[in-house]
Design a protein around this nucleic acid. Sequence first.
DNA 1: CCAATCTTGGAACGGCATTCCAGTCATGTC
DNA 2: GACATGACTGGAATGCCGTTCCAAGATTGG
Lengths: 236, 236
Amino acid sequence: MAARTGRSPRRTESLSRERIVEAAVELLDSVGEGGLTFRALTERLATGPGAIYWHVANKGELLGAATEGVVAEAVAVKPGSADAPREEIRAVAFGLFDAIAEHPWLATQLSAQLSRSPLGMVTPRIFESIGRQVRALGVPEDGWFAATSALMHYILGAAGQHAANAAIGRDLGPGVDRGSYLDSVSTAWAQLDPDEYSFTRAVAGRLREHDDREQFLAGVDFILTGITSRGATATG
Amino acid sequence: MAARTGRSPRRTESLSRERIVEAAVELLDSVGEGGLTFRALTERLATGPGAIYWHVANKGELLGAATEGVVAEAVAVKPGSADAPREEIRAVAFGLFDAIAEHPWLATQLSAQLSRSPLGMVTPRIFESIGRQVRALGVPEDGWFAATSALMHYILGAAGQHAANAAIGRDLGPGVDRGSYLDSVSTAWAQLDPDEYSFTRAVAGRLREHDDREQFLAGVDFILTGITSRGATATG
DNA sequence: CCAATCTTGGAACGGCATTCCAGTCATGTC
DNA sequence: GACATGACTGGAATGCCGTTCCAAGATTGG
């Protein structure tokens, strides 16, 4: 049961859970989700696996810590901004959107994290920052849970999917830019079977010219409209 | 290349890509996402790895095929039902919701699949079945893409997250039922820091009594309300 | 200065996806 | 009816992964 001496245990500045998580995030960002291996981690930290396992139980916990760290930073309310609740919700949404765009591995990780432990700190943290604004929006109390859940699910789902798409466009190689990538998908959609895919063919052109952030925000606004038109008082 | 002789190449009924994918789905359903190994697959099919690799390029392709098969079945419009578009959208949403609930591995797989290849058939298939109903709803054409995207992102995101939660409640062991699981999470939420988590604490009780399907549908309805109140003609 | 305890990193283990390859078997040809 | 062909099979081997083990180094308390 780990008798706590209360002393500062670090003999040198060499290794700590913080440094390990930090290195893990860097590795995930630079090499991608599959690039985070204990081998790579030991090399980067110039140590052995045993040292890492002393600070971290296993790879899952490491991924969880990395996820929580990045999410906490992303949903932190920027001080000084006491805007209208709608704007605050947009800000939280974009905060997560940008965080996932910057760290594409977050998309997969968040869905894995949310499913493995709603008792973890990740879900409540996101839930709280959205919920506060829902409350401020004037939604009646018995609608809080449904409204906040819907917003959180949309934001996490849509941000993940948009960011994943963006990641593809980025990784296609130096010669291929986002425009020509969307072109090729758009063209592929336009060539689908006219009977089975009449709608998809019809909107294939939109794919080429759409803006991801705008698209994402439109979804948030749909939900906000839906929430506030259900009899809530209009604050925003 | 691959000169096609036009002959039926199967000498016995023993192995085929179809049978492999089928076995993979069964394995995923019964043992979970981590249970799909080539070892287990060779054992179940009474063969060796080489035989499987003859029909399937790698594990990723196998997962993709499994995903597409299940999704195709889930979003297939039930014939004979020419209901109002709102009802059709709810049906598609519940189709995916139930499919993910029945095959929990779909949640992770869908986000991975959507990101790896939007050129694949999975995205257009879902997009099409939702989009047709959006069109039928009377949404003006320049809103089709945004409305359908928002719905698809919400449905996939929320269904995945709800189903993941449901999967936990199921896997807790024989002694723990869903009710007591939600109780424990609800209690944990109620004990969070009052300053940092005032909202989450306030709705902790709702968690105990909420119905997942109802919750999920509420989100769909928020978006539908948002879509139709943007100046579209009201059909549903 | 010595024991006790925390911390480290190298070596080893079992399991995984994947590859290699020698073989089997239905079939088309003479 | 033999035989060459090519689709198909499955066992053995490879290399990387997460994880565990353990002997030694570092630090601290007495």
